[in-house]
């Protein structure tokens, strides 16, 4: 086992030179990273970047074209059975049985994972409490609302107290309060030493991760703590513009970007504000102001701001490979 990537085999999740091809399409391209014990690791990237494919290879549901993944020291592709007994997984789709009750779903997965009756009773009570489902144990899962479903799915995924948990977009489509509750649960698990790999499209959630891996078109483009990423990954400065006519201003800036008139890395609308990424704030502040004023747009404010994770994300995704 070569360790050329400098990854510590003791770490609970180790990915080495992982590549997955579907025909000519390279879904995951030579990706290497490792996750520390008890870490909440954010696995980020746009749709189709290879996030789920990576997780499925980690779980042994797909075989890598080359490279390897190890979870808790077990090779995902060859020691799948042993690995499955000690990891948990919540997939992108809701995968519990809608025609079973909440309690039946928990019991089912508990028994499948080989829990004793006594253990199962205890876990069932814990999970019902964790998911806030007291009094709804006998409700059909289909009748539960989004937040409850997600928490129940998490409960079923960790019924056997796994050491490593994979969560694939666990909070997609649930309300902000449910999302907040869900992250409280994730942190509670991490506190008990569980390693969590989680994917999300919500940048506020990404900020909550201890470390982040960015994947774009199958390639790992950034890997660090959120705070560090904002410092290191941003090529250029972010200017925030407050203008009288944001739609027109966007069109003008986009045109200037495309024609090469302005070296804008990125122009994006954030509500009523525009974020423009320029090589240097000092050099381009006045250029932008002049351009927009000429078009009759009133520039109310134009400030350099600290990049958000979303700016970093977009910058990383758009960076030339």
């Amino acid at each position: 086992m070569s360790n050329g990537t400098g990854l510590d085999p003791q770490q609970p999740i180790v990915v080495r030179n992982l590549t997955k091809k579907f025909g000519d399409f390279v879904a995951v391209d030579n990706v290497s990273f490792a996750v520390n014990a008890g870490e909440v690791f954010g696995w980020l990237g746009p749709n189709g970047a290879g996030k789920t494919t990576t997780i499925r290879m980690l779980l042994g549901l797909l075989h890598p074209t080359s490279g390897s993944t190890h979870v808790l020291g077990l090779n995902s592709a060859t020691q799948t059975k042993a690995m499955h007994a000690i990891v948990g997984y919540m997939s992108q789709q809701f995968t519990l049985y809608n025609d079973l009750t909440a309690a039946e779903n928990i019991r089912f997965y508990g028994m499948v994972y080989g829990l004793s009756n006594r253990d199962l009773r205890q876990r069932q009570a814990e999970i019902i409490q964790m998911a806030g489902l007291e009094g709804r144990e006998k409700a059909l899962t289909s009748t539960l609302s989004g937040g409850w479903k997600q928490r129940l799915a998490l409960g079923c995924a960790i019924v056997h107290r796994p050491k490593v948990v994979f969560l694939d977009e666990p909070t997609a489509g649930v309300d902000p309060i449910s999302r907040r509750d869900f992250w409280t649960l994730i942190y509670a698990m991490a506190k008990e030493g569980v390693t969590v790999l989680v994917t999300t499209h919500y940048m506020d959630e990404a900020e909550l991760c201890q470390r982040i891996g960015f994947i774009s078109q199958g390639r790992l483009v950034a890997l660090d703590r959120p705070g560090r990423l904002k410092q290191t990954q941003m090529r250029g400065d972010v200017l925030e513009l407050n203008v009288s006519n944001p739609d027109l201003a966007m069109r003008i800036l986009k045109a200037a970007q495309q024609s090469g008139q302005l070296p804008l890395d990125e122009v994006a609308l954030y509500g009523a504000q525009i974020h423009a990424v320029v090589p240097s704030a000092e050099a381009y502040k006045e250029v932008l102001r002049a351009l927009l004023s000429t078009a009759g747009i009133e520039v109310r404010s134009l400030e350099r701001i600290a990049p958000t994770l979303e700016d970093v994300f977009i910058s990383a995704v758009n960076a030339p490979a």
């Binding site: 549901l61 990891v87 997984y89 997939s91 789709q93 809701f94 995968t95 519990l96 499948v112 995924a157």
Partner: peptide, 12 residues
């Protein structure tokens, strides 16, 4: 339904 994916990662 996608429920098979959850079963696949159990020791079943």
């Amino acid at each position: 339904l996608g429920t098979i994916e959850q079963i696949l990662i159990t020791p079943t």
